[in-house]
Amino acid sequence: MLFIISLISGILMPRFTKLLPSSLLLAMPVAYLALGESFALISGEVDLASGSVLILVNAVAASIYTDYNITGPLFVLIPIAVGIFTGITHGILISYGRLNSFLLTVGTSFMWSGLALVILREPRGSIPVWFSNIFASNFGGIPIALWALFLACGIWLAFYYSPLSLTFYAVGSATRTAYTLGIDVKRMKLYAFILNGFVAGLAGLIMTGIVGSGDPRLGATSTLVAILAALVGGASFSGGSGNGLGAIAAAIGLQFARNLVAWVGVTYYLLDLIYGAIIVILMALISFGRSKIAV
């Protein structure tokens, strides 16, 4: 899908190759959220608050620098810690509190976005110059967007080739069987949400670097797009399946598709309509293909 969209974009829009790094960078926050959703979906759960976590991390990052002049490593570590905290909160309440992940994260999505509004109240703030420069620079001749992509892929590969991956898939595909095999199901689900929170924290930092300030209105639809990308990448709501690399590629493809629709010259009030139609057709084709494979 990503290759086809990129090819079409290159043919229809000669400027596409020049705009590729910036388009790729814009796709990275949702790509990271999609990676996090893959961890949750593989374990048999779902997170409907990842976009709100992104907003909260962005608000915290802007606030700690603007209001408290915190910079250096702490500027990076504190927002990531916020993301991990949300993951721990979700994991404990779902795993040990036995709350439904769908219903819980719907509720916490309002909590995290509301907390972001309490922190910022309105779009404001700034970020350290050194952090902003990172997102306007190339390292070793490679755009920062590609480095962000390499990091996301590296996180998935480190997980996939670790002992955790097998237990995650086992827990998601057959929870009772996992119990009988001696797998600590509750702990694995907790780990899944911690990983989810960690990459959501990274997504929030990347978004902060892109926009250069704090905005509690960011990421309104990012949760749904991230879940969609994870599903396109091979995950399912039933658990036990998913591929982080596929989710990342799907998120990038969806961003490129939106850019393509805009670049063709579609008026802004038709943009969401056409983009939504593309998503519906895409999901129909994927469902049809999977049903054929199942047969």
Rank of each mutant, 00 (worst) to 15 (best):
F16G: 11
F16Q: 07
F16S: 08
K18A: 15
L19H: 08
L20P: 09
S22Q: 13
L25S: 01
A27S: 14
S38Y: 04
A40F: 03
I42K: 05
G44E: 03
G44L: 07
L48C: 08
G51A: 08
V53P: 06
V53I: 13
I55S: 14
I55H: 00
A62C: 08
D67H: 03
V76K: 03
I80G: 02
G83W: 03
F85Q: 04
G87C: 05
H90M: 12
Y96I: 11
S101L: 10
T108G: 04
S109L: 10
S109I: 04
L115F: 12
V118M: 14
L120Y: 00
V129F: 09
I134M: 12
N138C: 03
W147T: 05
L149I: 06
L151R: 03
G154A: 15
W156E: 10
Y161R: 14
A170P: 04
A174G: 01
R176D: 14
T180I: 13
G182C: 09
V185R: 05
V185K: 04
K186D: 14
F193A: 04
I194A: 11
N196Y: 08
G197R: 03
V199T: 11
L202Y: 02
G209N: 09
I210F: 11
V211R: 04
G214L: 02
P216Y: 00
R217D: 12
T221W: 12
A226T: 08
A226E: 05
I227Y: 11
A230G: 05
L231V: 15
V232I: 15
G233I: 04
A235P: 06
G239W: 08
G240T: 11
L245P: 01
L245S: 08
A249G: 10
A250V: 10
I252M: 04
L254S: 01
Q255Y: 11
R258K: 13
L260I: 05
L260V: 06
A262Q: 13
V266G: 01
Y269C: 07
L273G: 07
L273W: 04
A277W: 05
I279S: 12
S291G: 10
K292E: 13
